[in-house]
Each structure stands twice: as C-alpha cells, then as structure tokens.
Amino acid sequence: SLSVYRCAVISTIPAGESYNFTLVGAAIQSSTSEDWIAEKAIDRGLQQLYAGCSSTLSETNPWWRLDLHHIYRVNRVVVTNRNDCCAERINGAEIRIGNSLENNGSNNPICAVIPAIPAGESYSYSCGGMEGRYVNLIIPGDMKTLTLCEVKVYGEGKPKRSETGNLASNGSTTQSSTSGDWFAERAIDGNRGLHEQYKGGCSSTLAETNPWWRLDLNNVYSVSRVVVTNRIDCCVEKINGAEIRIGNSLENNGNNNPICAVIPAIPAGESYSFSCGGMEGRYVNLIIPGDMKTLTLCEVEVFGEGISVALD
C-alpha cells in the first residue's frame, strides 16, 4: 500500500519580498533514488503520494541545486522535511547561495546549517539578502541521503534587461587544447590580431577531434549576434563548418548547447556577424566537428541584452 504524506505550504509572503523564485527555477541533484526526481522539491506540494519528494541515493556529500536563472537577493529559504520516516537525515544540511558552479555549486557561501526539522514540518531560514543565482542544499559526509519534500526561495528583485556593448570583454575563456602560445583569451583581447598572427596574436587549438573554444559570460544574457574574425596568414578554410552554440549547460564542455549558427566560410582577415535572435545563455562555444581539425579565432565579440537586477 502507498503511504501518504502532506507537505506544509506557506502561502504568505512578508512585506518587501517578491514571489517564490522556485516557480521559475530548474532543479538538479547529485543522484536520484528511483522516481524521487529533483523537480519534486519545487512542485509546490502538488504531489501527495509516496515518493512525492526529491531524494538522492545514499552517497558522499549528496546535493540538490536550484538554478534561478538570474541573480536575486535571497531573504529566506523554506525547507519541508519528509514525514514518512528518517526525518533525522536532514540534520546538518547546508544551504548555500551564490553564482559559482565550482564543485556543482557546493562551494558557494553558507546561508544556514539545518540542525533538525521535525517530520513533515517546514522551517524557514533567513539569508539576509545574500545574492546568488544558485541555491544549493548539501549534506557533508559519507553514506548520506538528501530528501526534500519542498524548497521555497523568497527575496527581492526582478530581472530587467538593458543594452550592453561587447559582452566578451568581461568574460573568461578556455579551449580544448592550446597550440604554442595561442591562448584562448587572445580571442577576446579587443585586438583582432591580424598584425600579430605569426606571434600567436589569435587563439588556436591543436589538430584534434572536435576542437572547441568556450566563453563564459559570467551571467545569462540574451545574445543578438556573435562576430567572428578569421585568421589572415594561412589556412582560412579551417573555420568552415564551425558551430556557434549558446546556452547554460556545461554538459560536454558546453558543446551540447543549442546552435546559433554554422559558419560556412569567412574570408581571410575578415569579421563576419552571425545573428542569434536573442538566444539566452551564459556560455558561448565555437566547435568544429570532425577529426584532425584546428580551431583558430582572432577575435570573438558577443552583443545583446544584458540582464541586471532591480533591487528596490
């Protein structure tokens, strides 16, 4: 037979707070026990049957993460514990808030440590306006299981859009390999590098399978266009077939994100603009599919609408 649980639902929002940000967030966790998927912790208590909560497997340092998609000031996080059994498993869970995905977001600053939550109850933890895009819950230690029947995040601010210049200038870069001193960051140095190419004034990978270059914009933007400058010294056809991908995933080093454009060709030393129609993403990747390919970029510029936060 199925056990039945009830998650407490908090319906009021204190003055100065906006809506429950989890309504627009996306959840993920370190592992999943059967059908106790991460999203069940943000279903607003609509699931009432057994396994209506999220749960990891028993593992080392299990974690659950909510991506709010934008940066907010978080005033409080409300956590509802399970009521069927094992209520003590939540003890010691850390609530962390920040903008880093290092260690899956588990290195962000701590808002609170949960000492205990009685079975089936909801406790609220004050975060004092901590700013962040990611809300993580993690239980440090071996053979731990993290079960969450509901997580709610309340705070201040709403995203608004404003026009920006070249977004790449404030980003950071990496690439799949590096040929000599043709480092990844040379593709965003503000110098199209045409007079320095023999000195490594552009970025370049080695000849390899599926070489790629990635720009981290450090926030999510609505990208209208990407401008790519090709090399002038030789081998201009090597850029042919390069894919421009934009999105928020680091799966496969970001190379599984949606495609903005495929570059058919760029003449030697020229800069071509590729329209992305407002695609939203934090990461801009260029990748050339195939064997024994080399990706050289003399400049990559990214333009669009930046997302800032109105904190009234």
Rank of each mutant, 00 (worst) to 15 (best):
Q29S: 07
Q47T: 09
T32R: 04
E17C: 05
Q47L: 14
G45W: 08
N61K: 07
D35T: 07
K40R: 10
D43K: 00
Y50W: 13
E39L: 11
P14R: 09
I42S: 00
A27E: 10
E17M: 11
Q48K: 12
K40L: 02
S33L: 14
G25P: 00
G52W: 14
W36Y: 15
S31M: 02
G45I: 04
I13D: 01
D35C: 11
E59I: 06
F21G: 02
S30R: 08
R44A: 11
A41F: 14
L49H: 11
G52I: 05
W36F: 14
E17D: 08
S33A: 13
V24C: 08
T32G: 01
E34W: 15
E59K: 12
G16F: 01
L23S: 02
A41V: 03
Q48E: 10
A38S: 08
Q29G: 05
G25Y: 02
T60M: 15
V24P: 04
A26C: 00
A38M: 06
T22Y: 01
P14K: 09
A41T: 03
T60E: 10
A26R: 03
A26E: 01
V24T: 08
Q29V: 06
A41E: 07
S33Q: 12
Y50Q: 09
S55W: 15
T32A: 02
D35H: 13
Q48M: 10
S55L: 11
A41G: 04
G16S: 00
D43G: 01
A51C: 11
N61F: 13
A51Y: 15
R44W: 13
S58G: 05
L49N: 10
L49F: 15
E59C: 06
I28T: 13
L49P: 01
E39F: 15
I37P: 04
T60Q: 13
I37G: 12
Y50C: 09
P14L: 08
T56S: 03
T56K: 03
N20E: 04
S55G: 08
D43T: 00
T56L: 02
W36R: 14
A38Y: 06
L57N: 10
L57K: 11
E39M: 12
D43N: 00
L49R: 09
A38T: 03
R44N: 09
G25F: 01
A27S: 11
A38D: 05
S30P: 02
R44D: 07
W36N: 09
S18R: 10
T56R: 01
S31G: 00
K40C: 01
Q48F: 15
N61Q: 05
D35S: 14
Q47D: 14
S55D: 03
L23V: 02
S55P: 03
S33Y: 15
Y19R: 06
N20R: 05
R44M: 12
